[in-house]
Write a protein that binds this DNA or RNA. Structure first.
Length: 958
RNA sequence: GCUCUGGUGGUGGAAUGGUAGACACGAGGGACUUAAAAUCCCUUGCCCGCAAGGGCGUGUGGGUUCAAGUCCCACCCGGAGUACCA
């Protein structure tokens, strides 16, 4: 009987479903193991061959762990909220829930055909109220907590309130938006609204006026990771900076723990590096520079208020951040960002007009413009001066947009000799440049002759007062010690990581469980969750510019009856308006891995028992493109839940594997420029200028040979196409590009499953190359894998209970060893090769022994579960191969009697020689001498040196 | 610019300091067949040679080593991330 995958595969898929083979329980004597895939957004296009790559790899590992005796959690679900379904709704009026439902059904159908071992009883969908109840719940907890830097964890707001009532902000070290300083009396004298306003400064989920990434094209605000080069990642619309009142998550409070945690996880260095760069920790010093009040009559007394918490100076000062305190003797000007609040107060009358014009211009520039013109230097002098606290020099204060408002204090001390940006600025405006670091001790040169600044953090200080002659590192320490002693600054750390903007002016997302009394936000009680997404008439923003939820009629909170009521009943006494924004995509995906542990729990996010059993994700597989988004947010979310005592591990994903992107391989036909109907085969094109390459659907091309009949039918304009053929064939050109519809290079897994079966698809995706490497999709090789499976199948047609001979057993044990090693290091492409080698060898030996074939089928089961299950049952087993036992190799079976030694002379391989495995160096040399090959190369010469590596190699140096 | 990756036959790739090119695809030749499909066998890095055999070969140039695709230094090229973060 031939290998009939189309009969076998659906039959076993039904069997698995009916027998609940992949159902996982939360209690077991077995050790636990959690294998997770990044769940997909169900797009309208369905899966292409790139999606299952990671799923297949994780499925192999999950099945392998199960065969090793682990209780394996391997769930799947859908990241179901998102922009495309909503954009589609705006265009067509079809409710996003319907679109999403349809797309999920299609995904499920495609996934089922590939034979994954997912426990579908645990499926989650982020748009399901039973699920987002807990997304909303977590948001409420974030709202009700603040970050205490002393305890280094999140603490209840209630304890902060108690503290304020007792001692105000005294000794408080908490993450906040603005430093605050008040007494218990002040706190107690404030009314409810004022107190709420103050608390907002500390909450981990807070409402604030912040500069946001406003994307008019999508009608919403975006997080930093959703914007690339000034354009939205989704849709590519321009993004501008805008000051808006938005919900944010105080993820910056966790910056240090997010950096530290990277030490504890088993991720690739490159991904850790991406996160480290994104968090952007830099050590340095905060230094207060006093204003030169005497020489600047325009400085208002109000400037003093700029330093509310820290007031060491008799004169007004402003704070800067620097990573190079050692260069403080080289400061020749100061720069403020255009948003800096000091600008108005210090600018002189002569400069006022110019400064105002510049600030207006800078603020109105789009992010894209600003980024595109980074090389262009711009700025203006304020007319005011600061004083260098160490040299007492008078230093001009400038305004420029190369200093960013969102980092540090939005003000810098400029050291043009040792900072390339300051250097460019100084050169452009003719400001002085002073060398304070030299690469060779006491050797200086005239900065006027320099072509660039010396940014390196190495060398010695020069022209630097008391630190002159010190190494850069010592000078840094000495300067910080000095400014701390003077009380004008301190050692500090800055992070590039900004708080995550959490509001979206969209419909298809989780509603915020928040209502407003006099524009002060209040939380909807936890027991009233979920706050369900209301129906709306339209998915567009309202005429007044409100988010789509503004169209909802029933969208007001009845405080007394704790229910959502009609908007018409809003009286701001007992019925209040509900928040109109929804949460962003990363809200639902930040904690889903925990929910899989206990997906139907209605009284808690997940039970302590469930998380106590599963702990965290042991293996997470997904794309590296989530490095600055999902993988940061999820780590933050998990750490917060850890602080709450809910999650039990600080890091959610212990080991992480990035699957490489599958690129498309496009095919081209070449249309003659002289004859619009003539297509020239690739080999016959003499000059590429004479032809126009046209993308052609890869589904009508096989091994780069075009099916000309299908091409004529493909599109009406090609119906009468003529061809110039080579050897009777039309050969297409090819190129590696992104996989996309417009390039006609999308490969749909269903077509391949229909043609070759799921097992072939699974093996072939693995056979393409290392999982983590990007590689082009090319169906050319799939035939080879299909042939292999047919050959593997034939091996079992002669299965018998005869004992196996030694050779066959050796092949088996070698295979067990290699496959086990390969799976452990996620080298699945070499596993497939190993199966091919074993099958070829056993076929040559005509081995039909069950003693060999049974363990072999277990080895195959994680890779090709359908054929393995079929053969397993054919050999008389009643239970699923999924519950078989992973074979162990016997070292004794691998022992070789003789070893084929490569013999090198001066490091060049000349011949091989068979020697007994226990040969010594002397034995080997004697054998070489007496062999014909040995005579030829060695003759009667005495080797200068002989390297003999037992069982590996012999190298003779002459 | 900075950071991280990668560079091996016509193609995908293998080789954890020890025989470079495993395993496949493609190509060429052959067997079986009325034919096709399927299956099987041989050849296939480049150069010289009828052959035996030899030389050259892992982006480039150096180095370490008995031995380098693998380790070190410098450079070139591709991909990804990031982008005035002081």
């Amino acid at each position: 009987m031939d290998y009939n995958f189309s009969e076998i595969e659906p039959r076993w898929q039904n069997y698995w479903r009916e027998h609940g083979v992949y159902h996982v329980v939360n209690n077991s004597d077995k050790p636990h193991y959690y294998v997770l895939d990044m769940f997909p957004y169900p797009s309208g296009a369905g899966l292409h061959v790139g999606h299952p790559l990671g799923y297949i790899a994780s499925d192999i590992y999950a099945r392998y762990k199960r065969l090793q005796g682990f209780n394996v959690l391997h769930p799947m679900g859908y990241d179901a909220y998102g922009l495309p379904a909503e954009q589609y709704a705006i265009q067509t009026g079809q409710h996003p829930a319907i679109t999403t439902e349809k797309n999920i059904a299609r995904y499920r159908e495609q996934l089922d055909k590939i034979g994954f071992s997912f426990d579908w009883d645990r499926e989650v969908r982020t748009c399901d109220p039973k699920y987002y109840k807990w997304t909303q719940w977590t948001f409420l907890q974030l709202f009700k907590h603040y970050y205490d830097n002393t305890a280094d964890k999140a603490m209840p707001i209630a304890s902060l309130v108690a503290r304020f009532a007792e001692c105000g902000t005294a000794d408080l070290d908490a993450a906040c938006s603005e430093p605050m300083d008040f007494s218990a009396d002040e706190w107690n004298s404030w009314d409810e609204a004022k107190q709420q306003q103050v608390l907002m400064n500390y909450r981990l989920a807070y409402l604030a006026d912040t500069y946001v990434n406003w994307c008019a094209g999508l009608g919403t605000v975006l997080a930093n990771d959703e914007v690339v080069n000034g354009l939205s990642v989704r849709g590519g619309y321009p993004v501008e900076r805008k000051l808006m009142r938005q919900w944010s998550l105080r993820i910056s409070a966790y910056a240090q723990r997010l950096v530290d945690g990277l030490e504890k996880v088993d991720w690739t260095d490159s991904l850790k590096e991406i996160q480290r760069n994104w968090i952007g920790r830099s050590e340095g010093a905060a230094v207060w520079f006093p204003l030169d009040v005497k020489s600047n009559e325009n400085v208002l007394p109000g400037a003093q208020a700029y330093m509310p918490q820290f007031d060491p100076q008799p004169v007004p000062s402003f704070e800067i951040f620097t990573t190079r305190p050692d260069t403080i003797f080289g400061v020749t000007f100061m720069v403020l960002c255009p948003e800096h609040e000091l600008i108005d107060q210090i600018t002189t009358d002569e400069q006022r007009q110019q400064v105002q014009d510049y600030v207006t211009w800078a603020k109105n520039r789009s992010e894209r413009e600003r980024q595109a013109e980074v090389k262009k230097v711009s700025g203006v002098f304020t007319g005011a001066y600061a004083v260098n606290p160490l040299t007492e020099e008078r230093i001009p204060i400038w305004v420029s947009d190369y200093v960013l408002a969102g980092y540090g204090t939005g003000a810098i001390m400029a050291v043009p000799a040792h900072d390339s940006r300051d250097f460019a600025f100084a050169r452009h405006f003719g400001l002085p440049i002073r060398q304070v670091v030299s690469q060779e001790k006491d050797v200086t040169s005239d900065p006027a002759t320099w072509e660039e600044s010396m940014d390196a953090k190495t060398g010695w200080s020069v022209n630097s007062g008391f630190v002159s002659g010190m190494k850069v590192k010592e000078a840094m320490k000495a300067v910080i010690d000095k400014i701390e002693e003077m009380g004008i600054g301190h050692r500090t750390v800055n992070y590039r990581l900004r708080d995550a903007i959490f509001s979206r002016q969209r419909y298809w997302g989780e509603p915020f469980p928040i209502y407003y009394k006099n524009s002060t936000p209040y939380t909807i009680p936890e027991e009233c969750l979920p706050l369900e997404l209301p129906e709306v008439k339209e998915f567009k923003p309202t005429a007044t510019g409100e988010p789509p939820l503004g169209h909802a009629d029933k969208w007001a909170w009845d405080e007394a009856n704790c229910c959502v009521v009609d908007k018409g009943r809003i009286d701001n006494k007992t019925v209040f308006p509900i928040e109109l924004s929804t949460m962003p995509g990363f809200a639902g995906s930040s904690g889903y891995y925990l929910r899989y542990m206990d997906p139907t729990n209605n009284s808690a996010y997940f039970s302590p028992d469930a998380v106590g059993y599963w702990q965290n994700v042991d293996l997470y597989v997904g794309g590296a493109e989530h490095g600055t988004g999902h993988l940061i947010y999820a780590r933050f979310w998990n750490k917060f839940l850890f602080d709450l005592g809910m999650s039990v591990k600080e890091e959610p994903f212990q080991k992480l594997i990035n699957q490489g992107m599958i690129q498309g391989r496009s095919n081209f036909v070449y249309r003659s420029k002289n004859d619009n109907n003539l297509f020239v085969s690739k080999g016959l094109v003499k000059n590429m200028d004479d032809v126009t390459p046209i993308h052609v659907d890869i589904n009508i091309v096989s091994n780069d040979v075009l099916d000309v009949e299908k091409f004529r039918q493909w599109r009406p304009e090609f119906a009468d196409a003529k061809f110039e053929l080579e050897d009777g064939k039309y050969i297409c050109g090819w190129e590696i590009e992104k996989m996309s519809k417009s390039m006609f290079n999308v490969q749909n897994p269903d077509d391949l499953v229909a043609r070759y079966g799921a097992d072939t698809l699974r093996l072939y995706e693995m056979f393409l190359g290392p999982v983590e490497q990007a590689k082009p999709w090319d169906t050319n090789g799939i035939e080879g894998v299909f042939r292999f499976l047919k050959k593997f199948w034939r091996l079992y047609e002669g299965a018998s209970s005869q004992p196996a001979d030694k050779g066959a057993l050796k092949i088996l044990h070698q295979t067990i060893k290699k496959i086990t090693d390969d799976i452990e290091r996620f080298s699945f492409n070499t596993s497939v090769s190993t199966f091919m080698i074993a099958t070829n060898q056993l076929t040559d030996l005509k081995c039909g022994s069950r003693e060999v074939l049974e363990p072999l089928v277990v080895l195959m089961a994680p890779f090709a579960p359908h054929i393995a299950e079929e053969l397993w049952h054919q050999m008389g087993h009643e239970s699923s191969v999924c519950d078989a036992q992973w074979p162990k190799y016997d070292e004794k079976m691998l022992v070789e009697d003789t070893v084929k030694y490569p013999v090198q002379f001066n490091g060049k391989m000349r011949f091989t020689i068979d020697l007994p495995a226990d040969s010594t160096q002397a034995d080997a040399l004697a054998a070489i001498r007496s062999s014909a090959d040995g005579q030829k190369w060695l003759g009667d010469n005495e080797p200068k040196k002989v390297i003999f590596v037992p069982k590996k190699i012999i190298n003779i140096v002459l």
